[in-house]
């Protein structure tokens, strides 16, 4: 039972990675002069859309929280709206945090915001898919012994690794190498993407290694 769960998790994660790789290659067929560094904003948008789409598909296929009692249309619509609001809120709060961390306030606003969107895609969208617009559940998952399934565990790992990746991405900025990817926010977006992908790879492996220790309260 548990092994099959881990397998499903692995496949889902591989799909996410695949979507990121696709977002690098597919647009070059349709757009001229597409490259990650030069048309960075375009790539960011495409990557965000792809990852969101894959997450939604996974959500619709997998239906992780089957406990929703009501299934009326109005409930679904309010839920969807709530999700959108949550997503926007997270984008804005990430933007504020970036500015507080030292990002320029008045210049490169669009770039900073697209980084916030990307990071939200990597962190908030999976949370929304898995836990729904339920802030208390989020707080619960992101605390010690808060995870109640391997999905929530993997959510912890991917989210934290995305954050750490973004954080590490800021370090090359002051170096005097003069590379194009050192500009704000390219190194951070790349860091976030690599961190997210690393999290996607690491979390099934970590769960597999620790499958003996991981016991959840629910089941």
């Amino acid at each position: 039972m548990k092994d099959t769960d881990i397998k499903r998790l692995l496949y889902a994660h591989l799909l996410c990675i695949f979507s990121i790789i696709l977002s690098i290659f597919i647009p070059s067929f349709f757009l001229e002069n597409f490259s990650i560094l030069e048309t960075h904003l375009t790539w960011l948008c495409i990557c965000s859309v792809f990852v969101t789409a894959v997450n939604l598909v996974l959500y619709l296929v997998g239906k992780p929280n089957t406990s929703s009692k009501r299934s009326s249309l109005s409930y679904k619509v309010t839920r969807l709206l709530k999700c959108c609001i949550y997503f926007l809120m997270s984008c804005f709060s990430f933007h504020v945090i970036f500015v507080l961390y030292g990002a320029p306030l008045t210049e490169l606003v669009l770039e900073t915001f697209s980084l916030a969107v990307l990071l939200s895609t990597f962190t908030t969208v999976p949370c929304l898919c898995l836990l729904g617009p339920n802030f208390k559940a989020w707080l619960r998952v992101f605390s010690r012994n808060g995870a109640t399934s391997i999905w929530e565990n993997s959510l912890q790992i991917t989210t934290i690794s995305s954050f750490v990746g973004t954080w590490l991405g800021a370090f090359p900025i002051p170096l005097d190498w003069g590379r194009p990817w050192q500009e704000w926010p390219i190194s951070c977006t790349l860091g976030a993407t690599f961190g997210y992908m690393a999290g996607l790879v690491i979390s099934p492996l970590w769960i597999y290694w620790n499958r003996k220790e991981l016991t959840y309260k629910n089941n």
Partner: peptide, 21 residues
């Protein structure tokens, strides 16, 4: 790293903010 020493005015608040978060 000479770059980081030159940019320490930005690096130190960054590290401090990281520690606080």
């Amino acid at each position: 790293s000479d770059s980081f020493v030159v940019a320490e005015a930005r690096a130190a608040p960054f590290l401090l903010a990281s520690l606080i978060l």
